[in-house]
């Protein structure tokens, strides 16, 4: 554990809880992509199956349980409790275009051919692109609520902080997992456009709207 990873994890946690609280408080999931949330639920499920097979630390296990619960809680709020507020007309990204290539790639580039390892790798590839339906939705509606912008910024920062963590781990403990590093870089690049808008607009008190 180092400061970069801890900050990354806390940023990830903040993002997930921010979204949950936002939906709960406003009684609405308008502007949130249900498809991205479905992808994140698949990501957490396939990655954290190892809760049952390998123990790293209490910290890791608790975080995994929180991520899984919050993810399914978000799906429950979006597709059941506040379903009438779900803006499915603007959530039109075809997620099979992400699900299938990620699955194929996880069979091609993987550390070891075991079920758990392929599922873990799949979760890494899918996570890298899981935000695309949400970003697509923002670009279609041309705007995002400020709280949604904070959510996206925290979620994007998490993998950027993990990149610093991997650089640190490379020099301090010879850690080098190219699968997760390259996927993490791709994931962070996808947010760059959004980061720019967030810094130039949202942080100056303006609403995020596209020109």
């Amino acid at each position: 554990m180092n400061i970069f990873r801890l900050c990354g994890d806390l940023s990830h946690l903040l993002a997930i809880l921010l979204l949950l609280v936002k939906i709960w408080k406003t009684r609405s999931c308008a502007g949130i992509s249900g498809k991205s949330q479905i992808l994140f639920a698949i990501v957490y499920t396939t990655r954290y199956l190892d809760l049952f097979t390998s123990f790293v630390s209490i910290y890791n296990s608790v975080m995994k349980i929180v991520f899984l619960s919050a993810s399914y809680g978000t799906l429950y709020l979006m597709f059941y409790k506040f379903k009438p507020t779900y803006d499915h007309n603007h959530d039109s990204f075809r997620i099979l275009y992400l699900i299938v290539p990620a699955l194929v790639l996880s069979f091609v580039i993987v550390h070891a051919y075991t079920l758990m390892e392929v599922l873990w790798t799949y979760s890494i590839y899918l996570e890298a692109v899981a935000i695309m339906p949400q970003l697509f939705m923002v670009s279609r509606t041309g705007e995002a609520e400020t709280i949604t912008s904070h959510y996206l910024f925290a979620l994007g920062s998490y993998r950027a902080l993990y990149i610093l963590n991997w650089i640190y781990r490379y020099y301090t403990e010879d850690f080098l997992d190219l699968i997760v590093i390259i996927a993490g870089i791709v994931q962070t690049i996808l947010y760059c456009d959004f980061f720019y808008l967030y810094i130039t607009k949202v942080l100056k008190g303006k609403r995020l709207s596209l020109p």
């Binding site: 994890d9 190892d50 390998s54 790293v56 630390s57 890791n60 991520f67 070891a112 075991t114």
Partner: peptide, 10 residues
């Protein structure tokens, strides 16, 4: 084959 990769991150 009991090869297992250790993943210690989230």
């Amino acid at each position: 084959e009991s090869f297992k990769v250790q993943h210690d991150e989230l």
